[in-house]
Every structure is written in C-alpha cells, then in structure tokens.
C-alpha cells in the first residue's frame, strides 16, 4: 500500500509571520494539533504544533500577541513521498522517533501521514511507530 492511499490530504496551513495567538486559535477551532507553515508560493517552511506554542513559547514568557510563528516552528520537517510504500514511511517515523510525516509530491506538500492514518491500514506498523516514538507522558 502506498502513502497516498491512506494519507490525510486536507492540509491546514498558516503563514510564517502570523502571531502565535492566531495559530493557537486556528488549531483550537479546527481541533488539530499541528499546522504546516507555508510561504506565499506554497513552499513548506516548517511545522508548528500546540506543544511548540505552550511549552516552548508560553513557558519562556514570550508574548503570543507579537511572537511570530516562524520564531518557534520546527524547520527540520521529516518527510516521505506520496508514492512510497507505507512500511517505508513507518520506518522513517521509527528511526526519527516521531508520529507524523509531511508527504511530498513533486517537491510540493501534498498531505500528512500520521500514526493514526497508519493504524487504519496496519496495526503492526502503527504499533511499532508508537513503541519507537519519543514518549510524551
């Protein structure tokens, strides 16, 4: 099975110059925990998560009304390809101890593959990813 068969194609994104309060509101309203950070040309610049906002910005006393997303986003985004096999994608997640990959197609962001998506296709692959993931207890 290929990544494109099970990935989530609905990509929520935000601009790098948006402030953290706006990003937090958007994640809260959409009931999501992460967003792609993309520039005007649709190029993927990074990922921002609810945890980045609370644990890295708020914890350090940054003001969410004037701190831009690009200051706290993760720039080094782990990716896989849409036509890769899902077992290869699971291996990438395991090796990097993460639960989500950005899916690229022709150098453009075309979706996300999470361990939840993986669970729908293979409980063994999803289980292995969870066991390898960095625990956030």
């Amino acid at each position: 099975m290929k990544v494109r068969d099970i990935m989530t194609t609905k990509v929520e994104s935000i601009e790098p110059t948006a402030v953290l309060r706006k990003a937090a509101r958007k994640m809260s309203e959409l009931n999501i925990g992460s967003m792609a950070v993309v520039d005007d040309d649709g190029k993927l610049l990074g990922i921002i998560t609810d945890r980045d906002i609370s644990v890295y910005a708020i914890a350090m006393g940054r003001n969410p009304q004037d701190t831009e997303v690009q200051k706290v986003m993760t720039r080094d985004v782990a990716t896989c390809l849409a036509d890769q096999d899902i077992s290869d994608a699971a291996t990438i997640m395991q090796q990097q101890h993460i639960r989500r990959l950005a899916v690229m197609d022709n150098n453009l962001l075309s979706g996300f593959l999470s361990v939840d998506d993986l669970a729908k296709a293979s409980s063994d692959l999803a289980g292995a990813v969870l066991v390898a993931a960095t625990p956030i207890h």
Binding site: R21, A24, R25, D50, V55
Partner: peptide, 8 residues
C-alpha cells in the same frame, strides 16, 4: 494551555 489560554 495552547487552546484555553493562548487562543483566547
């Protein structure tokens, strides 16, 4: 903290 403090 993100959704109930920062977002609001």
């Amino acid at each position: 903290i993100c959704c109930k403090v920062t977002a609001t």
